[in-house]
């Protein structure tokens, strides 16, 4: 998959590596907020087309009669250097968009699951998804002002998280806080590979 599909002249241009990171969590958990806080450009949006299941791809008239709708995808960009960019993708919250999760998750470096302490159970499906696919993730416990402060240990227990899954308190509106979450994710990925990133 990591091939150059057309070996045209690139005139000395190096193509950067783009790494995908998913921002998941339940409805209203702060996904869009976190992507916006971290992105170096205005929060970007694009959409993917949701087509009725079982579409017959060879039948053009069938395509035209199938009802379709679009799913908005939030994404943001962080340029690390000339050769390296991070792309953050907010996952769509609703179950019927799982197909889009598969596309987003393909080849992803890892994921941040935002947990809203007022509705912890809302992030169960996200956690299940990443656990089942073996995609490294960290849990960002989003501290909404009106929520009572949970201890991280209580949240870990409630989420039935593996002891090695990092948990970080965060405020999705705050860039520094978001950075901390991403750093903990990348360090977690490195640890999982047995090559921990030395702490600065």
């Amino acid at each position: 998959m990591d091939s150059v599909r057309y070996d045209g002249e690139r005139r000395g241009h190096r193509v950067p590596i783009a790494l995908k990171i998913l921002i998941a969590g339940g409805f209203g958990a702060g996904k869009t907020t976190l992507v916006s806080a971290l992105s170096e450009v205005r929060p970007l949006q694009t959409e993917e087309i949701l087509t009725g299941a079982g579409i017959d791809t060879d039948d053009i008239s069938g395509v035209e009669t199938k009802s379709t709708t679009t799913v908005a995808m939030d994404f943001g960009r962080i340029t690390i250097n000339d050769d390296l960019q991070l792309y953050l993708f907010g996952t769509p919250g609703q179950d019927r968009f799982w197909f889009l999760w598969d596309e987003l998750a393909f080849g992803a470096l890892g994921a941040v699951v935002l947990a809203d302490t007022r509705r912890l159970a809302d992030c169960f499906p996200s956690i299940d998804y990443f656990e089942q696919r073996g995609i490294p993730f960290v849990v960002g416990v989003n501290c909404f002002d009106d929520s009572r402060r949970f201890s991280l240990e209580a949240v870990r227990k409630a989420l039935d998280l593996d002891p090695d899954v990092p948990m970080v308190l965060c405020d999705a509106r705050d860039r520094q806080s978001g950075k901390t979450v991403l750093i903990s994710l990348v360090e977690h990925v490195a640890r999982q590979r047995g090559e921990p990133v030395p702490t600065a």
Binding site: I17, I80, N81, K179, E187, P198
Partner: peptide
């Protein structure tokens, strides 16, 4: 690369 990402984020 992971190290570069962490350094870059910091």
């Amino acid at each position: 690369i992971l190290k570069a990402v962490v350094d870059g984020l910091r």
